[in-house]
Simulated assay, not measured.
Amino acid sequence: MNTKNIVISEQQGAIAKLTLNRPEARNGLSLAMLEKLYELFVELGAAKGVHVITVAANGPAFCAGHDLKELTAARANDDRGRAFFEETMAKCARLMQAIVTCPKPVIASVHGIATAAGCQLVASCDLAIASKNALFATPGVNIGLFCSTPMVALSRNVPRKKAMEMLLTGNAASAEEALQSGLVNSIAAPDELEERVQALATLIAGKAPATLRIGKEAFYRQNEMSLSEAYVYTADVMVQNMMEPDAKEGIQAFIEKRAPNWGSL
């Protein structure tokens, strides 16, 4: 497999754009693509000049999930593919967690199909805008392979019964259904998708990076806590945030009715 440019990374101002680039395979998440995406999220997460990351795809599909041909080929190994399956699932889980723990907000730009691990990728991003023609599914049940790892991200984004419906039936959800269930934030006409994603990314990129980092980390951490634990934790986060120079500047700018001058930009 030619892994050159398997993921295209571009930067425009404070916005980094990652583009899945295996259109001939419907952007299937091969082991090489999982590794490249992880590498880029770690790199961009640490890059001072990057404030927001967007994820798009070339070709007619956003992402069809794991590369089933690659997984099937591994069955010829002496262990019937077990070691390769373990490595693939572990590196997929590592990638999805890297997106969640990345200090930069991540926005998915979804067109065509986002199925199985592709749907998991969308659910793992902080925000998502979908084209009207987008379809979302966890269809593993149809081929005897329940979408257990996609279930983790899916069940943390949509209501329980909707998640179970998608997982048990394998049926595709339209962009409108994805919007109603909270899997995506908004829907755009196909020819307006890129512009809408760019506008959202630009809006968020104009906020203080340190504040975005603090807030994103706190959001995911408190979400796994009990109510009382969450309030104790976030109260401490608010105090620490108040001590940041950007909070001092932002509040002063609000009082003085002027635009803030973020020191961390």
Rank of each mutant, 00 (worst) to 15 (best):
G49W: 01
G49H: 15
V50M: 03
V50A: 06
H51E: 14
H51C: 09
H51T: 05
H51M: 07
V52P: 12
V52A: 14
I53C: 03
I53F: 00
T54C: 06
T54W: 02
T54M: 06
V55Q: 09
A56K: 03
A56N: 11
A56Q: 01
A57V: 04
A57K: 10
G59S: 05
G59R: 07
G59D: 04
G59M: 10
P60K: 05
P60M: 03
P60E: 08
A61T: 04
A61W: 08
F62K: 00
F62P: 07
F62G: 01
F62Q: 01
C63V: 03
A64T: 12
A64P: 00
A64H: 09
G65N: 12
G65L: 03
D67Q: 07
D67I: 01
D67H: 11
D67Y: 01
D67A: 09
D67N: 09
D67S: 09
L68Q: 14
K69D: 08
E70I: 10
E70K: 02
L71S: 06
L71H: 02
L71A: 10
L71M: 09
T72N: 15
T72K: 15
A73N: 12
A73W: 00
A74R: 08
R75D: 15
A76I: 12
N77Y: 05
D79A: 12
D79K: 01
D79I: 07
D79M: 11
R80L: 10
R80E: 07
G81D: 02
R82H: 09
R82C: 13
F84G: 02
F85T: 09
F85N: 08
E86P: 00
E86L: 11
E87C: 07
E87L: 10
T88N: 04
T88P: 05
T88G: 01
T88W: 02
T88M: 10
M89L: 10
M89I: 06
A90I: 00
A90S: 13
K91R: 15
K91E: 09
K91Q: 15
C92K: 13
C92H: 10
C92M: 13
A93N: 13
A93M: 13
R94H: 02
R94C: 05
L95H: 10
L95V: 09
L95K: 14
M96A: 13
M96Y: 11
M96V: 03
Q97D: 13
I99G: 01
V100F: 13
V100Y: 11
T101F: 14
T101R: 15
C102A: 08
C102S: 13
C102P: 00
P103F: 07
P103Y: 06
P103S: 09
P103K: 08
